[in-house]
Amino acid sequence: MKIEGAYSIAAPRETVWQYLMSPESLAHALLGCEKLEPAPDGSFQAVLKIGIGAVKGTYQGRIELADVVPPVSYRMKVEGKGAGGFVSGEGTLSLSADNQGGTKIQYSGEAQVGGLIASVGQRLVQATARQVVNQFFQAFSKQVLSPSAK
């Protein structure tokens, strides 16, 4: 499944980058994130509770960043598994200046869903992914722009 899109935040690229690299900030933006901790190998261990309506599941996973080019881009590898199966994906996030003096985050990647979720939920998988991503960026931008930030 391809996941791609763009999101603009009215903040300078360096600021956005800072937030994007901060586990605390990401954990706050990821709805239902119960844990996001650096692991010795440089990756992050995550526990994420995803709830879409009545469907709720807890995912344990690993997030790894690679090819980090501050404040321009990085590649992100995500692996997660829970009762409903597994999710894995790899994609690139890149930042650029948008026309309004803010920052445009472009993301593009491939995600794979396996197990139960794949075999019973295919009609909802894409919309779910979209919702998770949208919610993340909404929460993330709120955080970047909140007065208490910085």
Partner: peptide
């Protein structure tokens, strides 16, 4: 009819 099928899949518990 919306909830029980999801519960049976254990996607909602």
């Amino acid at each position: 009819h919306s909830l029980i099928p999801i519960m049976k899949l254990r996607l909602a518990s």
